[in-house]
Structures are given as structure tokens and as C-alpha cells.
Write a protein that binds this DNA or RNA. Structure first.
Lengths: 240, 240
DNA sequence: GCGATCCTTCGGCCTCCACCGAAGTGTCCG
DNA sequence: CGGACACTTCGGTGGAGGCCGAAGGATCGC
């Protein structure tokens, strides 16, 4: 026996980490980081495992509180349990080593380029677009990074103009910085980031590309961002 | 084969999580969360494993970038690699399930009570004391939680009075909230939290209890906190 | 009702890895 | 120089857990 039981009542860090220490479960969580609900079979195919294997993993993840599920007919929908969980996975992803070298196919490369350009990160925007919006907001004095990330009066006003009212001080911070693992630069997350992303979908600024977590900036969106943020977005001619 | 290699170049979340998915390695990291350097044998005894086992674990943790080491004669000192790593472990600890029921010994209970009262959490103060200081600072308008945690002008001035100058905006936020896993309430972390903790040691407000991460509030410290924060600290008569 | 589809349970296989003790190296101290 | 101590390497053991396919529900659409 080793003396793990000396620390009874303390956090069982290993149990939580073990949930994410398997390649397949980690794949599931990274996929779910797009904030949407997936069915068991979608995840299984995505990770390349048998359905029975996926069932086992989902039971563990749901049991461990990382995912929540919802049954609809013969489908089992799962999603990340809450923003806190998404934050944990983001943090792990930002600190984790990269995978081995990329001897990749052309379609895969295209898919990845779309993903790097603009995508959802749980409930907010990431990728080049997410970073660009964040930096434009900073340049216009809507965000302040001096004393931790804060939303200025101008920022609150700008959001209000869009019809976005922030919820009153909950446990969740209104603005939070999230490290982008393709750009390696922070972008806007938290309640305000989520609200802004929701608005971007609702107003038709962005749309999903197929069923992936990648999003495309529409012409409407491009115009809106130019008008409202002075953002010159080169999304149609990727500079990479 | 499963298709983990479809995501070449993406973060290898599982590899990082696997480092923390073992009970012994998790024990090591939680112990190192006191911010100090431990020798291999101290950690081995703490976790109740053989020295050879500890060597293997430390190789993995150092190799994975979670710990840094320093050789001094026949000793191998290890510590957490950086504040980012400490933050990751804190986050995991705050979300992890508690261990099974506590059928504990009296000395262990005393040790835990001292730990709950006041301790270091990597480089800042936690426990009842850490939370109390944070709340007193909030009450006096030095901290603002409205738009994420920020240090107000009053807060900056108060720190300056103590001779604490914050480093100019680095990547590390000056103030950050850290969730306490005994109190379940946030306390002050980040650069300011670290500086305040350092000052508390230097000025003799607190001292280490033996070799643990628990600290005791000195009479000097109690007076200083009463004078400067209006804090009525009941540390000598624990109310629990 | 009848297939098709989604999911689950079960049994068996197989790999991975945490553990220890024994033996060896390097360092400190008397 | 010799003993004590900190650490490392190595081989062997045992348990945990990830994987699959086959078989059995449950649900949908026709």
C-alpha cells in the first residue's frame, strides 16, 4: 500500500486527470470543445473507435461530471458539462505538447486551414478571427489588459449598441482571456465573449462550415466588422 | 489503429493528462503546490513509495515540463516549473472529486486544521487567512470583482505603502482569483498575491510551521493585519 | 411488422505501467 | 578511507484498462 489515504478528503486529482489521460477520451473532449452536442456515434467515428468503445468512454466522462447527456429517441447527445470544464480543457490543450510531425493529406490541410481561420471555442470565437476581433476591441479602448482583462465603459456601450446586455455579476467573469492554440495569442472569452459569438451567429455574421467547428465569415459579417470595429479582414485570401 | 493521427499538430492532451493521472505523481504535484523545492526522497516518503519508484515518476514529470530540477551534491531538488503549471494543478484540484471518507488519526486531523487555517498555495496565501485577507481588501475597495478581478487605485496605493511595487504588465496578470479547495471561496493570486505573500514572510507576519506548507500568523502579523486591513483574525481559537 | 440505425452489455485479448528489491554510482562526513 | 546517505538502473511481477466483435435492446421510418 502507498499512503494516498493520508490525504483523505483532499482532491483526487489523479481520478480527474485519468479521465483525460486516454487518447480517445481526449479526442472526444477536444471535439466537444466546439460547444455543440454530439451523438455517441459521431464521436466514435471522429476518433476512429468502435461504438461499444465509445459507450464505455462516454459513461466514464459523464460519470466524472465532465460531460452532460441528453437522450432523444435512439440518440445519446453529449456536451461539455459547463464553462468551467471547457476552461479546464482549454488550459490543458494550451499547455500540452503538440503531436508528432504532420505528413498530412490535402483535404486535411484545407480543413485545418479553415479551422485556424475562424472557429468556435466552446461558446466564443477563436482562430485568426477571434484574435483579430479581440485586438480591434483593445485598440478601440473597449478592452483593457492592464489590471487583468477588463471590459471598459466603451466596451459595455459597444456591446449594448449591438443589443447585447451582460448578465449581472454571476460567478462567471464577464470577460476572460482564452489562449488560442493555433495563434498562441489570447482572445476574448467569458460571458461577453459568449454573448458576442451568439450575436454573430444570430445576425448572420458567421455560419458553420458543414458540421465542423470551423466557421466562415459572411459578407454581412465582413461589412459589420469593418463598420463597427474598423476591421480589415482578409479571410478570403488567407495569408499563410 | 484509431485515427489519433488525423489531428497531427494538435495538442496532445492525453499525454499531459497522463502525467497527472497517477496517484503518486498527483501526490507529488499537490505537495509541490506549496511552491517550495523538495528532494526526491522527501516526496517518496510523503507518498509512501520506494525511492526507485519516485525516481521514475520525477523523470516523467520533469521530462513533461511540469517540474524543473536542480542537482545539489547528492540531492535532487524539484519544484513546479512555473506559475502556469501551478495554475493548472490548482484548477484540476478545484474541480476534482474529494477522496473517500475521513476515518483519520488525531495528529493528521491537527495537521489538516493548521493547513486549512493558513497555507501557501504555490506563491500566494490560501486557507482561511488567504480568504480573509482577500475579503478585507475587497471590503476596503482595493479589489473589484465587477468586471473580472481587478486591483483598484486604492489597492495599488496600499501595496505601495507596504513597499510592494508591481512589475509592469507582463504576460502574468497582476491579480488573479484562485479557488480555495478547503474554503471553496476565491482568494488573491497572481503577481500581486505572490508579492503580498513574499512581503508577509519578509516582514515576519507569518512563518512556516515545521516543514509543511502550513503557515502560522505571528503576533506581529496579527497586529499588522488589524492595523492595515481592520482584520480581526481568530487564528488562535479556530472556530471549527 | 420489418429492416436500418443507434446504443449497450459482455467476454476475451493484450498492452501498458506502477511497483518493488537488489545492486551499483556518486557525494558527504568523520 | 570507510560508512552513511541520496539517487539511479534493471529485471520481474501483477493489476488496470483499452480494444474489439457478437449479441441483444430500443427506436425510427416505411
Amino acid at each position: 500500500m502507498n499512503s494516498h489515504d493520508t490525504h483523505v478528503g483532499g482532491p483526487d486529482l489523479a481520478a480527474l486527470a485519468a479521465l483525460l489521460a486516454d487518447g480517445t477520451r481526449a479526442d472526444f473532449c477536444l471535439a466537444l470543445l466546439d460547444g455543440r452536442a454530439w451523438t455517441a456515434i459521431e464521436l466514435a467515428r471522429h476518433a476512429g473507435v468502435a461504438a461499444s468503445t465509445a459507450t464505455g468512454h462516454l459513461n466514464l466522462l459523464v460519470g466524472g461530471g465532465l460531460l452532460t447527456q441528453e437522450r432523444q429517441g435512439r440518440h445519446r447527445y453529449v456536451r461539455l458539462a459547463d464553462p468551467d470544464t471547457a476552461e479546464l480543457i482549454e488550459k490543458l490543450a494550451s499547455m500540452a505538447p503538440r503531436r508528432a510531425d504532420p505528413p498530412r493529406s490535402l483535404p486535411a490541410a484545407n480543413r485545418d486551414r479553415a479551422l485556424a481561420r475562424a472557429r468556435t471555442c466552446y461558446d466564443h470565437l477563436a482562430g485568426t478571427l477571434g484574435v483579430a476581433i479581440t485586438e480591434a476591441m483593445t485598440d478601440r479602448g473597449m478592452l483593457d489588459w492592464e489590471q487583468g482583462l477588463t471590459l471598459t465603459g466603451d466596451g459595455t456601450a459597444w456591446l449594448a449598441e449591438l443589443g447585447i446586455a451582460l448578465p449581472p455579476a454571476t460567478r462567471r467573469p464577464p470577460v476572460r482571456s482564452c489562449l488560442d492554440w493555433t495563434e498562441r495569442r489570447p482572445h476574448l472569452a467569458g460571458a461577453a465573449g459568449a454573448a458576442l459569438c451568439r450575436h454573430a451567429f444570430d445576425a448572420g455574421w458567421i455560419t458553420r462550415i458543414g458540421t465542423s467547428r470551423a466557421v466562415a465569415l459572411t459578407d454581412t459579417g465582413e461589412r459589420a466588422l469593418t463598420d463597427r470595429l474598423g476591421l480589415a479582414v482578409g479571410t478570403h485570401t488567407p495569408a499563410g
